[in-house]
């Protein structure tokens, strides 16, 4: 059980379209959500409801940035890009 992923070669591309991995299941919790990856058997913690909502919205937008803007506003892009990048390293997110 860990929140750290393997370091990715490529930095997270927030201008690209992303989605929740089909191998990942989410469970709402008071603090945010738990994500479980059935492939690598990892449990990952989404540490706020907002991060959860951004993750859920990703597939409806052409880019990660667009999803971030829609859910929490453009001003908060840096923090949310970091959160998504870490989820991508844990294979919670996959490119579309």
């Amino acid at each position: 059980m860990t929140t750290s992923g393997v370091l990715a070669q490529e930095p997270f591309d927030a201008s690209a379209p992303w989605r929740l991995s089909p191998q990942v299941a989410l469970r709402d919790e008071a603090f945010g959500a738990l994500a479980y990856h059935y492939g690598n058997r990892r449990l990952i913690f989404l540490k706020s409801k907002e991060v959860l909502e951004v993750v859920r919205q990703l597939e409806h937008y052409d880019s990660a940035d667009a999803a971030i803007d829609a859910v929490v506003g453009e001003a908060r892009r840096p923090a949310y890009r970091r959160a998504l990048a870490s989820l991508e390293r844990s294979e919670v997110l996959v490119a579309r």
Partner: peptide, 16 residues
């Protein structure tokens, strides 16, 4: 701000 561990101590909707 409560840490994740603090939140866990308050219990979850289902066990981990």
């Amino acid at each position: 701000e409560p840490t994740l561990r603090d939140r866990f101590k308050e219990g979850l909707d289902a066990p981990i």
